[in-house]
Computed example of a mutant assay.
Amino acid sequence: MPDQKAARRVVDIITGTWQAQALYAAVALRIPDHVAAGHTTDEALAERARSDPDGLRRLTRLLTAMDVLEATDTGYRLTATGELLRSDAPHSMSDMVRIYGEEFHRAWGAVVPAVRTGTSGFQHAFGMTLHTYLRDPGAGARFQRAMNAGNVFFPDVLDVFDFGGHHTAVDVAGGSGAFLATVLARHPRLHGILFDQPHMVPVATAHLDAAIGSGRHEVRSGDIFEGVPAGGDVYLLSRVLQDWDDDRCATLLSHIRAVLPANGRLLILERVVPDHGETLLPLLYDLHLLMAAGGRERDLAGYRDLLSAAGLRLESVHGLALETSLLVAAAA
Rank of each mutant, 00 (worst) to 15 (best):
242 Q>T: 13
50 R>N: 05
150 G>W: 07
262 A>F: 11
187 H>N: 02
311 G>P: 03
307 L>C: 06
133 Y>R: 05
208 L>V: 04
221 S>K: 05
232 G>H: 11
52 D>P: 01
144 Q>K: 03
193 I>M: 04
280 L>G: 08
93 M>A: 12
319 G>V: 04
291 M>V: 10
320 L>Y: 08
308 S>Y: 11
64 T>I: 08
327 L>N: 02
132 T>Y: 05
21 Q>Y: 14
220 R>I: 01
329 A>H: 00
275 D>P: 12
178 A>R: 12
195 F>L: 05
113 P>V: 13
127 G>A: 09
167 H>F: 07
293 A>H: 06
6 A>C: 07
314 L>D: 06
81 T>A: 13
221 S>I: 14
73 D>F: 11
85 L>T: 08
28 A>I: 12
326 L>R: 03
326 L>M: 06
284 L>D: 03
270 E>R: 10
297 E>F: 07
83 E>H: 14
230 A>T: 05
236 L>V: 01
145 R>Y: 09
214 S>W: 02
19 Q>S: 15
31 I>A: 09
104 F>M: 13
35 V>D: 02
132 T>C: 07
96 M>C: 10
1 M>T: 04
26 A>Q: 07
284 L>K: 06
52 D>Q: 11
179 F>Q: 06
76 Y>N: 05
217 H>G: 00
194 L>E: 04
119 T>D: 08
96 M>S: 13
130 L>D: 02
139 A>V: 15
110 A>W: 04
73 D>M: 12
206 A>S: 14
6 A>L: 13
326 L>N: 01
3 D>V: 02
273 V>D: 05
143 F>L: 00
41 T>D: 02
253 L>M: 08
147 M>N: 11
93 M>S: 09
227 G>Q: 09
17 T>C: 15
186 R>C: 01
222 G>F: 05
200 M>I: 00
96 M>G: 10
92 S>L: 03
25 A>L: 13
273 V>M: 07
55 G>P: 06
78 L>G: 12
107 A>K: 15
196 D>K: 07
281 L>Y: 10
278 E>A: 12
92 S>V: 09
84 L>S: 13
44 A>V: 08
256 I>K: 09
227 G>Y: 14
108 W>G: 14
25 A>F: 12
314 L>W: 08
194 L>N: 06
74 T>A: 14
165 G>T: 02
305 D>K: 15
214 S>Q: 10
218 E>K: 13
117 T>I: 12
168 T>N: 01
157 V>Y: 01
37 A>E: 08
86 R>V: 00
316 S>T: 09
105 H>N: 05
234 V>E: 04
137 P>E: 00
187 H>D: 02
278 E>G: 14
245 D>K: 07
260 L>E: 01
228 V>C: 00
100 Y>W: 12
182 T>W: 06
70 E>P: 10
326 L>P: 00
14 I>M: 14
24 Y>N: 14
119 T>E: 14
273 V>H: 09
121 G>H: 14
322 L>G: 04
103 E>S: 14
270 E>P: 13
